[in-house]
């Protein structure tokens, strides 16, 4: 409970800081809503020309996008620090967090907020509500599945950014791995087979971020729900282990900075 209060207080403080520049905040949110909407327009154009590809239609892709946009938006909005971890490790900026009583990793991830994430989340919820024709049960499942996908996004970001403990600079690599995850997650699962599918349920967990949640929204299956739960616990474990083991290799920087 203490952790939830701490996280809530941090998110609230971050939100107030970004709202100090209201125009920038709203333009970032609106910009991201339009960005996401344009991708849905692409799919609309595609399915207008080809109404179904291997059984996949426009409504299916709308659900994929609503889950992914909501989850990614919440991930960078609530835990934006996970996505900038590599550069902070490379610059030796973790010292401040190491001496504080709260868990280092939690403190690091909630200490940053990417404003545009709220645009993604807003878009995801709106698209699901207006284009996916959900029942009340679908809406409940959507909220739960989006939160699970958010957890996996954050865990993945921590794991790939923590590579900086070993490589020194890992910003580009981690950005590209996260980009890869988003790319694979926002296309139909049926496009991928064989070894690629194995990768999408392990190294690049698009299966847990999008494919299983989307199939559960179509038709609830307790077996797949348990697989998703196991995948989520696995993702968190990998993230925490990678960060904890990597932190032992951490070297402070000699940069002098004032935190006010």
């Amino acid at each position: 409970m203490n952790v939830v209060r701490f996280t809530g207080a941090y998110v609230w403080a971050n939100l107030r800081i970004t709202l100090a520049y209201r125009a920038a905040f709203f333009s970032a949110v609106l910009g991201m809503v339009i960005n996401d909407a344009i991708w849905v327009v692409f799919w609309w154009l595609f399915f207008t020309r080809f109404p179904s590809v291997d059984g996949y239609g426009f409504r299916d892709i709308v659900i994929v996008w609503s889950i992914c946009a909501t989850a990614f938006g919440l991930a960078v909005g609530l835990a934006g620090g996970a996505f900038t971890l590599a550069s902070r490790i490379a610059r030796g900026e973790l010292d401040f967090y190491l001496v504080l009583p709260k868990p280092v990793i939690l403190h690091l991830v909630v200490s940053r907020m990417d404003t545009s994430g709220w645009g993604d989340a807003l878009f995801g919820v709106a698209v699901f509500a207006f284009l996916a024709s959900p029942t009340p049960m679908d809406a409940v499942a959507f909220v739960g599945l989006s939160l699970i996908a958010t957890t996996i996004f954050v865990s993945y970001a921590i794991a790939v950014n923590s590579l900086a403990f070993w490589t020194g600079r890992a910003e580009t690599l981690s950005d590209q791995l996260i980009f890869g995850l988003i790319t694979f997650a926002t296309y139909p699962e049926k496009l991928f087979t064989g070894a690629v599918k194995v990768v999408l349920y392990t190294v690049v967990p698009a299966g847990f971020v999008a494919y299983i949640p989307v199939s559960l929204l179509h038709e609830w299956d307790w077996g797949w729900a348990l697989v998703l739960l196991a995948g989520t616990i696995g993702s968190i474990s990998v993230a925490v282990t990678t960060f904890t083991v990597g932190l032992r290799r951490y070297q402070s920087g000699n940069l002098t900075a004032m935190r006010a």
């Binding site: 333009s27 970032a28 910009g31 991201m32 339009i34 960005n35 692409f42 020309r49």
Partner: peptide, 30 residues
Amino acid sequence: WIEDTSSIYLIYTRVSMILGGLLIPIDLFP
């Protein structure tokens, strides 16, 4: 004139991608 142009740049890139026929040749558009 405005505080932050990054969202305008983002919209410019996305609109040009779709209407430029990046992923679907324009010959296949409605």
